[in-house]
Simulated assay, not measured.
Amino acid sequence: MSGARHVDVGGAAPYRIAIGDGLLRDGAALASHVRGRHAFLVSDANVAPLYARDVADAIQAARPDVRCIVSCMPAGESAKTLDRFGELLRELADFGATRDACVFALGGGVVGDIAGFAAACWMRGIDCVQLPTTLLAMVDSSVGGKTAVDLPQGKNLVGAFHPPRAVFADTATLRTLPDRELRAGLAEVVKYGAIRDDAFLDWLDAHAEALLARDAGALAEAIARSCAHKAAIVERDPLEHGERALLNFGHTFAHAIETEQGYGGLNHGEAVAVGMVRAAHLSTQLGLADAADARRLEALLARFGLPVEVPAGLAPDALVSRMRLDKKAAAGRLRFVVWRGAGRAEVLSDVPDDAVLAVL
């Protein structure tokens, strides 16, 4: 569509992120990524009634030779399981999907993760196009090729790196996004300022009201700047052997909270907000950053209506036990992304338990 912004992700498997209003109606652009004649559109019970049929029709109108079917899964993190993943594979088999089939992931991060994982595994890997419909998915999970499902023991423990062929972030879908989900996405937007770009935090503070009011220009700018930051990191470290770990700022705390709550309490963005504040306070506890830095981050997140305290009823010892199974732990030693102030994040290994417990 004209007027769309673009962010290119380089590396061994380059692709383009398109950001703009009305992208889901551009059947020609969507269909251009279907190399064969099978398009498998995965969505969930919240998103499918709003957009799935229109997307499928747009693809087929542009490419009448393509068969496009819709698979609708339950909404929410609790659906991101091995059983649901197996159901998607069986549907691909029943569909007769060939090696040149394309999976379209239409929804938030849950849909993107599980549909992308199915694409990564079907016939050892077929094409996937990410169609994120939440702010959080637009700026985070749809970019970078991480795909996964959860286990009861932890979040995203089973998965694969599988870069998409393309990402279409249609900002029109944000108009139907619940307020809570919009705020959750803003947590991940704030993260980019926290780890890489102090000036971006100032921009977010200055445009907080416009972002919460869903101003189209402000949202597009926030998405583009966030995606550009992530793209730059992913290009240099596609498999998270180094710098990419910085994207996990706050996530070790967040995943422990989500898992301990059985994926039924804070949503991911809310948990990340709490986790980033804990990581900032941990940095202060370890003498790496000034307490004023943590207070500044906490105030910005609170301005966006996000939680900043660990939910009541979660035992610190239980959360630390969850962290030991986190993918970001190394040989059972706690490893965290900390900062030396806004925009200056780093990975720190062998963090003492007592320091973590002190901020929980």
Rank of each mutant, 00 (worst) to 15 (best):
A101N: 04
G86W: 08
D179H: 10
L246V: 04
R183N: 01
A4G: 09
S142Y: 06
A224N: 02
A245Y: 02
E87D: 14
D326K: 06
G332Q: 08
M323R: 00
N267Q: 13
A271Y: 07
Y15E: 05
R183F: 04
D150S: 12
W122T: 04
A210S: 15
S71I: 00
A273K: 07
H255F: 11
P74Q: 06
R5P: 01
H241G: 13
A13S: 08
A105M: 09
R303H: 01
D353K: 09
W203G: 04
E221H: 09
T252E: 15
A231E: 10
G341H: 01
S32L: 02
C72E: 14
R278Q: 15
A172F: 07
R175H: 06
P311S: 05
L186H: 11
V42I: 07
H229N: 12
C227P: 00
K155D: 12
A194Q: 08
G269A: 08
R324K: 09
A245N: 01
R303F: 01
K191V: 00
F104I: 10
V274Y: 00
V167M: 11
A312G: 15
T176P: 03
I126M: 08
V70Y: 02
C227M: 05
D8C: 02
L30W: 00
K80M: 09
G242V: 09
V234Y: 06
R196P: 01
D293T: 05
V34L: 09
L92N: 08
L357T: 02
F249W: 11
D94W: 13
R333I: 03
R322E: 00
A62D: 15
S2V: 11
L314Q: 05
G107A: 12
L135D: 14
A97H: 03
V189Q: 01
Q261W: 10
P238S: 13
D65Y: 10
D150A: 12
R214P: 04
R244G: 09
F304Y: 15
T171W: 08
F95H: 11
D8H: 05
A358I: 07
A118Q: 05
F304W: 14
L360Q: 03
L325W: 05
P64K: 10
L88P: 03
A245E: 06
S349G: 15
A273H: 06
P49N: 03
Q153H: 12
G76P: 02
R67D: 13
A280P: 05
T98Y: 07
D215M: 04
N267W: 05
D8L: 08
V310F: 12
F336R: 07
L334G: 05
T98Q: 15
R333G: 09
R67K: 11
A39F: 07
A29P: 10
R278M: 15
A39K: 01
L50Y: 07
